[in-house]
């Protein structure tokens, strides 16, 4: 799906300017950035998190993530937003909690980036 659809599905809003047509195939919910660095799939992974420091944006940059979705209305820090503008990482925020945000995206076809064998 497209980032624009993600925004609709979770009733979220964009925190910076980005291409809403960018594709999202995988979701990765996390409180652990090393986990993302180890397992995220490139280009089409959406990171879903409560972490709001600049490192979440750096991590997204390193793994070539499609964007970051902040749940529970957690607003990224000023430094994180500034970094997202420098690196072009899309940021979205939603009022939904982690469970509901992931549930809705999964139901709409977003696949888990981390597969349990």
């Amino acid at each position: 799906m497209r980032l624009g659809q993600v925004i609709e599905i979770v009733g979220g809003r964009a925190l910076n300017e980005f291409n809403h047509a960018r594709q999202v195939e995988f979701g990765f919910e996390t409180a652990l950035l090393s986990d993302v660095l180890a397992h995220a799939k490139p280009h089409t992974t959406l990171i879903i998190t409560e972490i709001t420091n600049p490192q979440v944006v750096r991590t997204a940059e390193m793994v070539d993530a499609a964007g970051v979705l902040f749940v529970k209305n957690k607003m990224p820090s000023h430094d994180a937003v500034r970094l997202s503008n420098e690196t072009g990482i899309p940021l979205i925020v939603t009022r939904l909690g982690m469970f509901e945000a992931c549930g809705k995206l999964y139901a709409a076809g977003v696949q888990p980036a981390r597969r349990v064998e």
Partner: peptide, 15 residues
Amino acid sequence: QMGFGAGMGLKNIRK
């Protein structure tokens, strides 16, 4: 709490 230091870093690097 910031999302780092879970004992994965060096293993990630090796991978």
